[in-house]
Write a protein that binds this DNA or RNA. Structure first.
Lengths: 340, 340
DNA sequence: TTGTAGGCGTTATCAG
DNA sequence: CTGATAACGCCTACAA
């Protein structure tokens, strides 16, 4: 009695099957190098004992883990869900597992998370955006850990990446807003520091405004964390400015959804009294009322391509590539010309 | 040249500091057992070399990983976000890391994920709900891996858990709906199979109806996956039934949000033409229009308590406990008496 | 306080 | 096709 819970090991299986551990290992990893008879014998033992290989031991001995890590800014809203999901499905097909962590939008934490993932034996990493100090890249390079950057893509950068030009993507939408006649434009941006996506999107809006001869009033730009409540709060603040904006452009759909909710609460009609735009085209975008005019990003494709790139890198096929994806403004109902 | 990227090991550090690997190990794990002078010497070497301990090796040698795993049905919407977030923060304070996987609402996958987490050396597991075959529990028990169940709690169950009684929680809301005068009630439920939370919530509604002398028409109950689109689709189907429901109760807030969106699209006023209710009280609930009447679940506390329980179990303090949390109906605007 | 040495569960190299 | 056996990087008695 009191038999301690014994976890079966390779050795146990070997014994039960009357072969060496090496053979069992082969049965598990390179079936083709084993005779049919011993294979079935071994597999039976595996079944009976309920054997599950010890991942840590395996990773250590094989010097690879078939695991890749991803660090995303947040899991709290759906912004990254679709892309990561596609990423993980694609990885699965290639025989890799995915480990995701989130840095809760605190870029300082990323380095720590990277180290953690690496120390866990990640064969490769998916990182979001470009903003991080070069030490981090060096760290990865020293250890020979390939990584691909996603969700962003900056002219002139050289690291393997798959993404879209956030600036170029926001541009057409901003142009549209202005061409519709809006002259007083409020902006609810994500926190720009350490976030090149947020920064690029904001810059695109500013650029567009100046290009059209509008002056950008810093007071009409609010930076805040990506979440519904903050979208609401920022919107309320913006609507108190003078002159009141006739359009509010948001750094993403979540912020925009928060803004729309607050508008209704304040009795402000969208888009009659004020237009609101988003970015990302997450599922929520077409479910809010009025449906959100936003920029569609091919998240799924991005995830798939990222997986391809990363695995190629890991398995020594292909080298640094840069894949730029196209985005598209999708006009729905939250944007219209300003009331005259 | 072509110096292969050499990852520093304990041994490297030991050499650089002029001590044994054992001492370095102590400096990293039990500082108090080392003299100040050697400690600083060692730490310096660690810095210089940029040493990061190899997690796999450590887990293997120490026979523990300080890692706990969680398996949630989905990361695609915010249902589990708050609770898991709190869980992870609490764990962090106790010196544990969290690994989360999601089974995308396919209960069959859970077993596989559990094995994966276990083979990765998880010291303990957080599982959602009770529905799983006993083999799984046996598997965990054999290996001495403690687990706590959350998000649910069924009378008479014995496994350590922290949660709320889904049935008892939905009951008051259903009663409320009926007492308001609704006689034709549609239900958009989550898929019941392999999901005790969805099942309990649905049963609560049925119970309440029969208790009030209403007959439950199976045709007025739709089961579907938790997501916005499905909520919309199901709502549309429901509104085509005869007699038309005057209230639609949803298995969670996401479904309800989808229903609300569709209602507007169809020109149906909520709550004037039809009332809609949710469950969970996620952030979205108060941002939709009309704000959702739902059941508030103390997600954060649940996460915290789960962490306490699990770590106690792992560290051999305390034994199986059952913590029941209270939920609360929160009346907002999406529920009103039926039009007479 | 510090060092020595054995072992954790697998994989991989080399003979047989 | 199969079996020894040496790593893999670290922890932990046990000794000194």
């Amino acid at each position: 009695m009191n038999r301690q819970p014994s976890i079966p090991t390779l050795e146990d299986v070997a014994q039960a099957a009357g072969v060496s551990t090496a053979t069992v290992s082969r049965c598990l990893n390179e079936k083709e190098k084993v005779s049919k008879s011993t294979l079935s014998k071994v597999m039976e033992a595996v079944e009976n004992l309920g054997y599950t290989p010890n991942f840590n031991a395996r990773a250590m001995a094989a010097r690879r883990s078939n695991t890749i890590g991803a660090i995303i800014p947040t899991m709290e809203n759906a912004i990254f869900a679709r892309g990561i999901q596609a990423f993980q499905v694609a990885l699965h097909e290639k025989g890799y597992n995915l480990l995701v962590s989130s840095n809760v939008y605190r870029p300082e934490l990323e380095t720590e998370l990277i180290k953690s993932l690496v120390s866990r034996g990640a064969d490769g990493l998916l990182l979001i955006g470009h903003s991080r100090d070069s030490e981090t890249y060096q760290y990865l390079e020293r250890r020979g850990i390939p990584s691909v950057l996603a969700w962003s893509m900056q002219p002139g950068q050289t690291h393997t990446c798959v993404g879209f030009d956030n600036r170029a993507s926001m541009h057409p939408l901003a142009d549209k807003v202005i061409e519709l006649g809006h002259r007083h434009i409020g902006v609810i941006s994500g926190i720009v520091e350490g976030n090149d996506r947020a920064q690029s999107r904001l810059e695109a809006i500013k650029d567009s405004m100046t290009a059209h001869g509008l002056t950008v009033d810093p007071d009409m730009i609010i930076q805040t964390f990506y979440d519904l409540d903050n979208g609401s709060i920022a919107f309320e603040q913006l609507m108190q400015k003078v002159p009141t904006p006739t359009a509010v452009m948001c750094g993403n759909d979540v912020l925009a959804a928060g803004a729309i909710a607050k508008a209704r609460e304040m009795g402000i009609k969208v888009p009659e009294d004020v237009s609101i735009t988003g970015f990302d085209d997450i599922e929520l975008a077409k479910h809010v009322y009025p449906a959100l005019t936003t920029v569609h990003v091919p998240h799924r494709e991005m995830g798939r391509r990222a997986a391809d790139l990363l695995v190629d890198l890991i398995e020594d096929r292909g080298s640094a590539s840069i894949i730029q994806l196209d985005t598209e403004v999708v006009m729905r109902d939250s944007l219209s010309p300003p009331k005259t």
